[in-house]
């Protein structure tokens, strides 16, 4: 399947979920964000990007070392 078609399917799916979010709002919200019908759309998207960027940055700057880091004899 070509990438354009995949992108279209993806966008269609997101649109559908966007509409479904309004059709089925959370009946028992505990926090203000649970009252927003499409909150999880934004949370999923920006959350995943935040995790990737932040983890990669910390990993690159600090945590990732050469494979023989502990093996100095």
């Amino acid at each position: 399947m070509n990438p354009t078609k995949l992108r279209l399917i993806m966008l269609g799916l997101i649109l559908l979920l966007f509409l479904l979010g309004f059709a089925f709002p959370n009946p028992h919200p505990h926090f203000w964000w649970q009252k927003i019908p499409v909150f999880d759309i934004f949370f999923g998207f920006f959350g995943s990007i935040l995790i990737i960027v932040l983890a990669k940055w910390i990993g690159h700057k600090w945590l990732l070392k050469d494979k023989d880091y502990y093996d100095h004899d």
Partner: peptide
């Protein structure tokens, strides 16, 4: 619906950042 929203948009984020996520060399994490 909320769960699917979360999952599908995580997939979207992954698609955008696949190369960044897969990039790297063999290393160990402290």
């Amino acid at each position: 619906v909320a769960s699917l929203q979360l999952l599908v948009l995580t997939l979207a984020g992954f698609c955008l950042y696949t190369n960044k996520l897969m990039a790297g060399r063999k290393s160990i994490s402290l």
